[in-house]
Design a binder for these strands. Structure first.
Lengths: 188, 188
DNA sequence: TTAAATTTATACAATTCAGTATAGAAAATA
DNA sequence: TATTTTCTATACTGAATTGTATAAATTTAA
């Protein structure tokens, strides 16, 4: 609950996105956060620990934000999955969007044994599982399959938008998602 | 045409993929390549120049490989675009696949003004343009739109496969691609 | 006010980084 | 064989890297 600890987490999140994780030194982080290395290492055992916490918090915040918006938008499962891409679009096209954290982290830590890579893969899986639960509640037979397809469109759009702002990728992803959702076989 | 120059390019390509670009030092590259820094800096002005050449060569090799395979598979445009995902699958599921270079490079160089990021974005655009030409020749009305959707599925699959080998993402991407291609409006 | 906890300031170690200087060895060419 | 080009070996610079040690200053709590 320390204010300094949260400030460090926030600044690190920002710098990791704008400059890359491996290109951001702890000296830069503490300088921008207005503190010192001694304080950073009091709250985080190592830079890797800081990276892992940044990823974890970002993932939790994103999932919570998405879940709240979907639950607020509708109570009917069949409608919720239709709204999924709308909220993704809202996020991706917002001015402060700078890419999906677990995609970028896995690129910077390609070794599958790396804790950062492992956590990234875990978050990607949880995201798919979440979409699959939406699809299942909406009565889709192969909910895992549709969820995987939608996640490809969504993560592809995030990647495209991160590479070039205003790519418009999400617009076409929405059209493709609608076709896939509408043509997906239902349970009964 | 120097053998050493090509060896350096090959080793750098390999290390960039397996350890990441920013995590790979020129000392490591020359050690693995069995040469010295003096030789590396004779052929490449800087590490950034080496990165750019690695990206460029990888992009050209990939495009040439894909184009040759598609031309060999069929002479009918309508069939070629159907085969696109098959060859992507072949590459993505091959044991030495380690991710799409321009996706990973753009993550490590997030600054849009960075030459590495710019070249990555250029390659992504050229890839989409190539798919669009296939779609156009196949008689698709909105060839750019379908190409964008297919590229999202393809790049999403590459990302998924890079994160976790044997993800099976490409299988579902193929199913989604087939639906999108089959339902896409034709010119006449 | 006194005591305890937090934070800062600084200096440091040990390593790694990109890139260069110099000189000699090896290889190709004439 | 003589000459030129290529490559190696090695040492170096100067900056940046993560992480720690030590002591002083500041803030919080009693």
């Amino acid at each position: 609950m320390s204010a300094l600890r949260e400030k460090i987490l926030h600044v690190a999140t920002d710098l990791f996105h704008s400059r890359g994780i491996n290109s951001t030194g702890v000296d830069t982080i503490v300088a921008v956060a207005g503190t010192t290395k001694m304080t950073l290492y009091k709250y985080f055992r190592s830079k890797e620990d800081l990276i892992l916490e940044v990823l974890q918090k970002g993932h939790e915040d994103f999932q919570a934000w998405l879940n709240e918006n979907l639950n607020r938008s509708s109570k009917h499962p069949a409608e919720k999955i239709q709204k999924l891409l709308d909220f993704i679009e809202e996020w991706v096209t917002s001015p402060d969007f700078r890419g999906m954290a677990f995609i970028k982290a896995s690129a910077e830590f390609p070794n599958e044994e790396s804790p950062v890579h492992k956590l990234s893969a875990e978050h990607a899986k949880e995201f798919r599982t979440y979409i699959a639960s939406l699809a299942s509640e909406a009565g889709i037979s192969d909910s895992d399959g549709l969820a995987l397809q939608l996640s490809l469109l969504i993560e592809g759009s995030m990647q495209a938008e991160q590479m070039k702002r205003g790519s418009g990728a999400i617009k076409y992803a929405k059209k493709a998602a609608k076709i896939l959702i509408d043509t997906a076989p239902r349970k009964h």
